[in-house]
Amino acid sequence: MAKYRKKPVVIEAFQYDGDLMDSNGKYYVPEWAVKAHKEGVIYFDSQDSDSPPTELYIKTLEGNHHASVGDYIIQGVQGEIYPCKPDIFEKTYVKVNENDNMLVSKEDCLARENGDNTLTPYEVVCADENVFVIAPVSINDDDSCTTDYEQLEAYSNDKSINSLEKLGFIKIED
C-alpha cells in the first residue's frame, strides 16, 4: 500500500481558553477570529434551551463544530476555520518562529522532490545559523532508517524559503 506525507503548510491558530475577549470587552484573539466572530462563523450558543450561550461553535463546510476549552482554533490555508483537539494539534503542528522561521535546524526533516511525484528524505546532520549539512536517508524493509553519510551536502542557511525551494527541498514533519 502506498504511504503519503502531508505537505508542509503554515497555518494560524490560537488555543481557546473559554472566551475571545478580556473583561473590558477587548478581543485578544487574532484578527481573523475577531472577523469570524463578528460575522457569526464563530459564535456562542447553549447546548440546551435552559442554559446560557456559553459554548463556542464554529460553522464549517461539514456543519457546526463545538470547540472545548483547550482546543486550538485554526485558520487553514484557504481561510477556513475549524477546531482541533490539543493532542492532535501537538502531533501535527510545530510553532513557527517568525524571526527565523526558515532556518534549518538539526531537528528538521527535509525532503527533495524527485520530479516523479516521490520524495527523497534527508537527515539534517548538523546545522547552525550559517550552514546546514544533510545526508540522504533510505527506509529499510523493517521501517528503520539508514543515513548515507558518504553523500553529505552542505548549503547556506540564509533564512530564505526561496533558497530551500530553489534547491528542490521542502521541510517535512514526522
Rank of each mutant, 00 (worst) to 15 (best):
P53A: 12
D50M: 08
K159T: 07
N140Q: 12
P83E: 02
F169A: 03
T54M: 14
E98V: 09
L61N: 15
E173K: 13
D108W: 04
I134C: 09
K106I: 03
F132K: 03
L61C: 04
L20R: 09
F14H: 06
S23G: 14
E123M: 12
A111Q: 13
L103F: 13
I88P: 04
F89D: 01
E129G: 12
T120A: 08
A36W: 15
C109S: 04
K106H: 06
K159F: 07
N130F: 09
Y93N: 05
R112I: 15
K171T: 08
S68G: 07
V41M: 08
D100R: 02
G168H: 08
V125E: 05
A33C: 13
Q78V: 06
Y4P: 03
S105E: 06
E153T: 01
K59D: 14
G63K: 06
F132P: 07
E123P: 01
D174I: 07
V10H: 13
D108R: 00
C126L: 12
C109E: 06
Y93A: 04
Y16H: 04
D71S: 05
C84F: 01
N99M: 09
R112S: 09
F14I: 12
D19G: 15
K26D: 00
D108Q: 00
P86M: 03
I172Q: 01
N24H: 10
K59N: 05
A67L: 06
Q151E: 07
G18L: 10
Q15S: 04
S49V: 03
D174T: 01
N114A: 04
A67Y: 07
V124Y: 08
K59R: 13
P30M: 07
S144D: 08
D174L: 10
K91G: 11
Y93V: 01
S68C: 08
K6F: 11
M102R: 14
E62S: 10
V104S: 07
L164E: 00
A36Y: 13
D141Y: 15
K59E: 08
F132D: 05
E165V: 05
N97G: 09
D128H: 00
Y43D: 02
F44H: 06
D45W: 02
P121R: 15
E31C: 05
K7S: 05
R5C: 06
A13Q: 03
C145H: 00
K59M: 10
K166S: 15
Y16T: 03
E12R: 14
Q151D: 01
P8D: 13
P52R: 12
A127Q: 00
D19C: 14
L164F: 03
K7M: 06
P30D: 00
Y155E: 09
F14C: 08
Q15G: 02
V96M: 09
G18E: 10
N24V: 13
E107G: 02
I11C: 08
D142L: 00
S144I: 01
P30H: 02
N64W: 02
Y122H: 10
V29Y: 11
N117Y: 11
K38T: 05
A67M: 15
D158K: 02
N162K: 07
Y57Q: 08
D142Y: 03
R112A: 12
D17K: 11
L110C: 07
T118K: 13
Y27P: 12
D71M: 00
I139C: 10
Y57T: 03
I170C: 11
K159I: 02
